[in-house]
Design a protein around this nucleic acid. Structure first.
Lengths: 313, 313
DNA sequence: CTCAAACGATACCTTTAAGGTATGATAAGG
DNA sequence: CCTTATCATACCTTAAAGGTATCGTTTGAG
């Protein structure tokens, strides 16, 4: 499959006539016919009904046509965006993040970065923690906000805060009958919902590891794509899940209880390359320190523990 | 530009070494070098810094790399989806759902199902709309709650409601300066964030298709995993996204504006196999009718249009 | 500081695939 | 039934992809 074939197919789908499409594409009709045939052979499905005049799309052809339009549009956009970056000499600064950090200070931090460094083109890339390390080393991102500790000597990891975890439990169940902190051992024998399902390892594995360390075995583990699904299933009484306390705002039709064990926390970690002396790394660190000094609502000191960190190394 | 060149470039970007990348691609190093040069000539920008070892990406190269990954992923997905279309018991009762239906009546419906049919083992499976049709035909699920219309004659699709779409825009931007409904044409030239990234086609494609139909071309498209990431990026002023109106509760630090065009809706559709006379299908239909008669808060009649549907066919 | 190894670029050749022409087969309308 | 339009097949030409040989540059070890 190739972009040229996509363009050829789109033309045929729009004209519903190979001869006219060939004219528009400035090629002869037989090579157009052959290229569409090659495409169908590669896919193993028929895209067009040729026995009728004008030709009609099959169901697969209709789907393929819509998708092809989008892919061709995406290619156009990436060409334009690449040229814009390359020709305008804007600096790009890439930030990797795990989704849960969007409920902490990351949105504000990015806004402050835009204010302090308007010349930067800030790219935001969702990567689970384990993906951030190679991404940093390969230069695909410049900093990363992750949730898992690592041991790579080429990447500096600084714990910004340790966020307390809470159990989201279905309304109307026994565990929902109180609001006091509960022991993680209460989760024994429960159906556990974990996320994100892939890529792994991820926060799902962090939770499974913490439960294991506390000798807690759930009755069933159900892996789902992401937190919104997990909390939705809790609302549907399909099980319980363990989430960072900042995510409690997502739904109000489930019950939340703080997990009392002090080890039941999830760190938020800033990662960057060793020896990266970019002024933007310094700027990020300074902005983070300022934000923490301001004690903003999302920091929620009742559910976060700050390690005695500073950025002086 | 061609898919082959994108694959070549991605390999070089990942290996940071032309010789190794060539080996992985099963071609010789000189043609790889030349193809990347042709690509750079066509774009008119440099993608790689070759004077350093290992080679590094330029800023334009980094953006191009991320975009190329997305495009290649899309091509893979469209191939798979096209092939899938072209080419479907205590009693377990499986319900497929798209994540956004968890913010509607699905959790309540499942609770009612559990009450009315306690003998059922209700399995909940997150599947995007297009995955639900083969899943129904193959018997992997018994009903599905999806967002995309289909034309498969073997599956009955009933539109339960048409949910109005809203634009989530960053605080402090021009579009956030009003609360009145806005025209979809206002999204021209904006950076658009779409979700879910995979599998495809999905709600992301529904939005892209709707924009295309209204002749709206965004400046850039950024695909992310799911709505929480999309809204978080909006909060970080990384672009705008189009969401179902029920999802507005997820974040309060972005601005929402109803999109005024009447066609800018996303249907919620109940799908089941033709001729499926299961008492549970009848039960689900009855429960849905009861729930809609109760006019619950999530139904939000201001942002939903009910088609004159009944389940009598 | 020197040298050898690694690695990307250039030149030129071979092979492969895209496209063109001629023509056959089939659908559809008069 | 016949003619025209349209897609498929066969075969040839042309253009581009890929291979080999080799040059120039970077980097790290001694």
């Amino acid at each position: 499959m190739d972009l040229r074939q996509l363009r050829y197919f789109v033309a045929v789908a729009q004209e519903r006539n190979f001869t006219r499409a060939a004219e528009l594409l400035h090629i002869a009709q037989p090579p157009l016919s052959r290229q569409i045939q090659l495409l169908e052979e590669e896919l193993g499905v028929s895209l067009l009904i040729r026995k009728s005049r004008p030709v009609r799309l099959t169901d697969a052809g209709r789907l393929f046509y819509e998708q092809a339009l989008q892919v061709l549009g995406r290619v156009e956009q990436m060409r334009d965006a690449t040229r814009r970056i390359g020709l305008n000499q804007n600096s790009v600064f890439s930030i990797g993040f795990v989704a849960s950090t969007l409920y902490g200070g990351l949105p504000s931090l990015v806004r402050k970065m835009r204010q302090h460094a308007p010349e930067l083109d800030i790219q935001l890339l969702e990567l689970v923690s384990v993906q951030q390390i190679p991404a940093l080393k390969e230069g695909r991102i410049d900093v990363g906000f992750g949730r898992l500790r690592h041991s790579d000597p080429n990447v500096v990891g600084t714990v910004l805060r340790e966020e307390r975890l809470v159990a989201a439990v279905p309304m109307g169940t026994a565990l929902a009958g109180a609001s006091t902190p509960l022991s993680v051992k209460s989760l024994r024998g429960q159906k556990l919902i974990v996320y994100p399902k892939e890529p792994r390892p991820s926060y799902a594995d962090q939770v499974l590891g913490l439960l294991q360390r506390h000798d807690v075995r759930p009755a069933e583990v159900h892996e789902v794509r992401e937190i919104q699904t997990a909390l939705g299933l809790v609302a549907a009484d399909a099980g319980v899940c363990v989430i960072p306390s900042s995510a409690r705002q997502m739904r109000s039709d489930v019950h939340y209880r703080l997990i009392e064990e002090e080890a039941m926390t999830s760190p938020v970690i800033l990662n960057h390359r060793v020896g990266d002396n970019s002024v933007y790394i310094d700027l990020i660190k300074r902005l983070i320190e300022e934000m923490y000094r301001e004690n903003p609502p999302w920091l929620d000191m009742e559910h976060n523990v700050l390690p005695g960190h500073s950025f002086d190394s």
